[in-house]
Amino acid sequence: MFDDFSSSFIIQHYNYWMVIVLMMVGLYIVVSRGNLVKKIVGLNLFQTAVFMLYISVGKIIGGTAPILTGNPDEVYSNPLPHVLILTAIVVGVATTALGLALIVRINERYGTIEEDEIADIEQEIDRQESA
């Protein structure tokens, strides 16, 4: 009885857990890496995992894509999460483009895209200013 419950619980939720593992990897990359490009890659990973969460919400087992076929017995998956995620993907690529453009400029000014080296340069600027 308990066994049955736990296995069905896993089957019912494994999808969410896989998505969460991906989110964690993405978030870990953003927080732990000092390379600016790598941070953006991590951010993309994190966001894509969130997209998967939404799409999982919309899925109905045995359903098909929400493009109407005219067959009255057809079961369609929920279209609303798809719409939301289409918007979110666009927002994601917009953020990526902006972030990368900033990186290009930062590299031109600082000569590096490593966070700690940038911090050193900024400290140097601070010191010169107060001197």
Partner: peptide, 13 residues
């Protein structure tokens, strides 16, 4: 997961 439009966009973008 039946999200063909999303898949299309994700692949392109």
């Amino acid at each position: 997961m039946d999200a063909v439009d999303v898949a299309f966009t994700e692949a392109a973008v």
